[in-house]
Design a protein around this nucleic acid. Structure first.
Lengths: 224, 224, 224, 224
DNA sequence: TATGAATGAGGGTTCATTCAT
DNA sequence: GATGAATGAACCCTCATTCAT
């Protein structure tokens, strides 16, 4: 009767992670994020999520309520994961020019390597942002990065290396714009402009973006 | 074939728009574009499109085949309409700096005033670009604008006013990136960064983008 | 190719009533009434209704909206049908005693032969009467019967044959009570009191009820 | 086996009601009765019952088997509780007329104050009485009341105060009919006849019913 | 004993699509 | 050419029921 005695063989992963609520919830969230990112809100299928998460559908409803709530959880999760990645970015000891170059390269690689984040933003904005407005703490999730940018801008301005009228949020939006678009619109760009959005192209782009920003930051602000 | 030439038969003009196949098709396309842009591919409803176009559902199927084909037609239509708008842009007699400023302002206004275009691109890229790859002539649709940009870049470079290593497609992608992102991601930006993406903000942004690009174009290319 | 030519043989009921919206709706209503009466609100199955009505489920939703609305329609239908039966009742030319006897017999037979009416009332009252409150014209449906009762009471009182303080609604509720209970509670009565609620028993009951009512009506009202 | 005998072990009385199988079972039964009465057989939810009884769902299954068995237990319980109420009724020392008046008033108040009994009967009869047929001892539960009625009828007949051909079961069914209907069909009566079934109305009704029955009982039986 | 975790089977509802006039 | 009528196939969600601790 030692069929049901995994004690003696804890290593055997025959029954992966049964009866572990937290793990189940995590798997569901991961699968949901992938599914919503791949097919949008309406195109996502609860059946598929259940299957990919190796749980039954009722578990999803018991943990998350309904599709809408699951979507919100997935959207929030995409921000949480992005933020975890951003923690690795260290700009403190860099010159403004190096910091910009690092930030651009990082942001671009970040978007490329986490395409579900880009897809979730697309999906959410398509639907009018109803969900993100209901997630209270999204602003806080992103703030450390902005703070980091503010620091190096202040340092550079104090050292007289760059202009002193640059808002960190505006700069971030600029960088994000330049990095987001080629990733988000990869397929239409390729079809319309025959541009192959591959690693080489992206590397060149990162360099060009950095050049442009550096040039702009160095310049003295207009007299107006 | 004078079926589609009601001009020669003014008698039968009792019912103005009825029994006009071309008009029906146009109405369907318009409604489909609005619906797909508003709710994405999976979220769009054929019933709603039929209702908004004031046609019966079988009409849609007889004209367009199925939802997939209708989606492709709507996607193509969004490019056609965008292109029609771009025709109004005249850059020939402007200095490079003026041309950039005009192009940026125009592109931004364009995206803002045709949000369905932005939504259709989002939707199409979300789904992997399968549809746009099947539309043969999309590349040609966009080319006049690129040509126009090429012209003023060449002129400016010849006059020594700007650097001569700028690719028109790259420049357009840069401008598009900067104009697209704040429009496309309006809702998440507002939620995360508390930035109100209104007309004032967009005007300032257009100026800032133009400054940055001008600065970059003027600069001599790096030695490498 | 005369497979699809029923014209030459209109009698053949091979394809019963296809493409007849009104007929479909009628069949659905009939099936719904039977199903709700047999299994109650929650126990009724839309699938079963569709099957019994020989329509697909979407037809039901297209005609009636949802289960709740279909239930309301069925409830209303049960009153309409009951009312149609009551029209056959003629009390005008009868003496008060005969009228009562006729009314009692009729009501009892009515309830026995339309058990779905009794079941629908049970179901609706079980759920708190939410549905019937939303049906505007139920009161009017029942009123002719009350009017009829009022007439013979007035006639009998004027002739001095019966007391003159009897309210027609109260009398109807009394009769309904006496006729409803043995029909509605047929199964529990049989199980608890071993009373076989069959035709013989019901006939005797009708006589007893009539006796009792007659006795009561004849009596002069109490002094109080 | 002193697990279920906390009396002998007052030490472990820290948690008063916990680990008391009988109490749990009682709470389940009470909650089930309320739930089945409120929503009918199909509409009742095991989850709700578990929650209201403060037990886990597996407890319910371990005590009662399945929903069907729980329903039967609840149905039986409703009879048991009704019977407990009836025990308080004392008709022995009353005149026939007083006994009838007391019995009517009591029955009406009984139904009004135990609406779940009425609802359970409705539900059970709606479903065809399958459950009650499987409960063996229901007949015995009700019999004392019938016996009590038989007594006072015999006494009254012997004293020549009332007719002697009245069957106690028939009389009880008559009284039950008159008291049950206005309670059971409270909502539809209000909607259809605009009669407010409140305490005043019920008091008047009890008086009227008693009058009618008294009148009938006093009368000499018909010659037939 | 007691229960959190989990699920198979279905229930109501919707949607793209077609039929028949 | 045009449409009201109709439906198969899902989809989201729930519920009675069991597993495993």
């Amino acid at each position: 009767m030692n069929q049901t005695a995994p004690k003696s063989a804890p290593k055997s992963a025959a029954k992966p992670v049964k009866r572990d609520a937290a793990a189940s919830k995590r798997r569901i969230l991961k699968a949901a994020l992938a599914e919503f990112a791949a097919h949008g809100h309406a195109g996502a299928r609860i059946d598929t999520i259940a299957e990919k998460a190796s749980v039954s559908k009722p578990m999803i409803y018991s943990y998350f309520g309904d599709k809408e709530e699951l979507y919100k959880a997935a959207l929030r999760e995409s921000y949480v994961q992005i933020r975890q990645g951003e923690r690795k970015l260290k700009l403190e000891d860099l010159s403004p020019e190096e910091a910009v170059r690092e930030l651009v390269g990082f942001t671009l690689r970040h978007f490329v390597s986490k395409p579900w984040f880009v897809s979730m933003l697309n999906t959410e904005n398509l639907l009018g942002g109803d969900a993100i407005r209901q997630i209270g703490d999204v602003a806080e999730i992103q703030s450390p990065l902005i703070e980091s940018i503010r620091q190096f801008l202040k340092r550079g301005a104090a050292a007289g290396e760059i202009r002193d009228d640059v808002d960190p949020v505006e700069l971030y939006i600029t960088i994000a714009s330049l990095c987001y678009f080629p990733v988000s619109n990869k397929h239409t760009l390729r079809a319309v402009f025959k541009v192959p959005i591959d690693d080489d192209w992206l590397d060149q782009r990162a360099a060009m973006i950095s050049d442009m920003l550096t040039c702009y930051l160095r310049r003295t602000p207009p007299a107006s």
